[in-house]
Amino acid sequence: MPQLPAPDYPADVRARLEADAREVIARYPDSRSALLPLLHLVQSEEGYVSRTGIRFCAEMLDLTTAEVTAVSTFYTMYRRKPSGDYQVGVCTNTLCAVMGGDAIFDELKQHLGVGNGETTEDGKVTLEHIECNAACDFAPVVMVNWEFFDNQTPDSARQLVDDLRAGREVEPTRGAPLCTYQQTARILAGFPDERAGAVEATGGAGHASLAGLRLAKGETGPGRVVSPRSAGYPADEPPATHPSSHDAPHKTSASDPKHPSGPVTEEGEE
């Protein structure tokens, strides 16, 4: 049975979205390059990329709905069904997982009564596991609408989702103030971030991430070698050899006693 054409937006919504879309398209030399931000734009309207949104993007960019669908289903940042106001993503990549991310994810699934990619009955929270978000030094990390909540535990994550569902104010560990998923989608479409304090805030590298950079710039003292082999000398006195010096390559004659050549001298002569 053939599928019915996707419905269109109401006239007032269509007019508003067309004005926004033309502004986005004008930023690119080739109109089809605007597809990704336009998908964020329609997602900001309905909270996901609907058939109506796909039709709108196709008409604005002179593409087929198949071409738009192929892109919208390729990227995980585009939702394919109605979801919650807050996307709660638990990093379950390697470091976050071993630091407790798996435990947090399991706790939230049980506490919220939902599985991966599912939404609570009140429509507030969509839970999903996410890949690395480059915040490994703050593991385990939970993200709400792509804002960072660092060094989480099962208890703190449970309190976080309870606060979100109750409408209580929640502040990210760092970065801009929290907003709804639809508001986040509009920002990702390329429109000004109007949240109070968003311009001053930074969601970039935190203090732990920048420790190596400060060390390289000489802004802090050199690191101290800490090794299980260090027990035999005082903490303020380095060992005579590097802790891994026993792993260094030996001279051929020393590493293979059966080798016929004699020991090599400092001058390279036998």
Results as ranks from 00 to 15, higher is better:
M1S: 14
M1N: 13
P2E: 02
P5Q: 06
P7K: 08
Y9E: 05
Y9F: 12
A11R: 06
D12V: 15
R14S: 08
A15E: 14
A15M: 11
R16S: 09
R22S: 13
R27K: 12
D30P: 06
D30Q: 11
S31V: 15
R32W: 08
L35E: 08
L35M: 14
L38E: 01
L38D: 02
L39S: 04
H40E: 06
E45P: 10
G47I: 01
G47D: 03
S50L: 03
G53C: 11
F56A: 01
D62P: 08
D62I: 03
T64G: 05
T65R: 04
A70E: 10
V71R: 05
S72P: 15
T73Q: 08
T73I: 11
F74L: 14
M77N: 13
S83Q: 05
Y86C: 06
Y86K: 05
T92F: 02
N93I: 04
N93D: 14
V98M: 01
D102W: 04
I104W: 00
D106Q: 09
L108N: 01
K109C: 14
Q110Y: 04
L112N: 02
V114A: 01
G117V: 14
G117D: 04
G117M: 02
E121N: 10
T126D: 01
L127C: 08
E128V: 15
I130T: 14
C132S: 07
A135F: 06
C136K: 05
C136H: 03
F138G: 08
V142D: 06
V142K: 00
M143E: 09
M143Y: 03
V144L: 01
V144M: 01
E147A: 05
F148T: 11
D150S: 08
Q152T: 08
T153M: 03
S156K: 12
A157H: 06
D163R: 12
E169Q: 13
C179V: 15
C179P: 15
T180G: 07
Y181I: 11
Q183F: 02
T184C: 03
T184L: 05
R186H: 02
F191N: 01
F191S: 02
D193Q: 12
D193E: 02
T202S: 14
L210D: 13
L215G: 11
A216G: 12
A216P: 14
G218T: 13
E219C: 13
T220Y: 03
P222F: 00
V226T: 11
V226Y: 00
R229P: 00
G232N: 13
P234S: 08
E237M: 00
P239R: 06
T241Q: 07
T241F: 02
T241M: 02
H242P: 05
P243I: 03
S245A: 13
H246R: 12
A254G: 13
P260H: 00
S261Y: 05
T265W: 00
E267Q: 10
E269C: 01
